[in-house]
Design a protein around this nucleic acid. Structure first.
Length: 206
DNA sequence: GTCCTGATCCTCT
DNA sequence: GAGGATCAGGACG
């Protein structure tokens, strides 16, 4: 029991020193989407800390019909036009939230949707929030990972380089990235803007 | 004001 | 594989 706790702290605390800087997000959205794979998303709140390796992302570009920002800024998508390295969280299908990271300079409405994570920290808390025990059922899918991580709509627009909700660099590289078309959209579905880590069981759809 | 749509997930068949 | 749950935002009148 004690050993397990120590391991968890080690996993989480090591990368906190290396939170990805704003400059990481202030680049081409497709590059950010592919390079986010393998890094670690962390959320910390009063319930505890949860974290997971990003294994699946999708890029949404401003001139792309599937992107919320394609028709200009509205109250809903305002966070997407904010500075790079912020969160864009929106409500979908009456029941779920999706979590995005904002890219490019302020005023450009582009973002990367985080579609799936591999749970690594706070797994018991994730199981409790999701009401499921199986690891791959915790963060496989955008709505699921938001629920498991305890991400809240009030975190919309929040700075991802702070100490509550952030992404930190992981050492491991060498994974094979698959670049394919996006999921669940009608327009722009032919564009290869989805990225995932080949063979990872937490990827939502293959 | 009303109506329709949707970057999803779960359950049942 | 199909269909239902459930509601905010946007389009339209």
């Amino acid at each position: 029991m004690k050993k397990k706790f120590a391991e968890e702290i080690k996993i989480i605390s090591a990368p906190i020193d290396r939170v990805l800087p704003v400059s990481f997000y202030d680049r081409d959205t497709r590059i950010v989407a592919s390079e986010l794979l393998g890094h670690i998303l962390v959320n910390s709140n009063s319930e505890g800390m949860t974290s997971g390796i990003i294994v699946e992302t999708e890029a949404y570009l401003q001139n792309d019909p599937a992107c919320h920002a394609a028709r200009g800024m509205t109250k809903r998508n305002r966070a997407m036009f904010g500075p790079p390295g912020c969160a864009y969280i929106y409500f979908i299908y009456g029941m779920y939230y999706c979590f995005n990271v904002v890219t490019r300079e302020q005023g450009v409405g582009e973002a990367v949707l985080i579609r799936a994570l591999e749970p690594i920290g706070g797994i018991e808390l994730m199981k409790k929030r999701r009401g499921r025990d199986k690891l791959t059922e915790l963060c496989r899918g955008p709505g699921r990972l938001v629920q498991a991580m305890g991400i809240d709509k009030n975190q919309n627009g929040q700075d991802l380089t702070g100490n509550e909700l952030f992404v930190c660099a992981a050492d491991e590289g060498g994974h094979n990235i698959v670049n394919t078309t996006r999921v669940g959209i009608s327009e722009g579905k032919e564009l290869p803007l989805r990225f995932y880590i080949a063979g990872n069981p937490n990827v939502s759809k293959r």
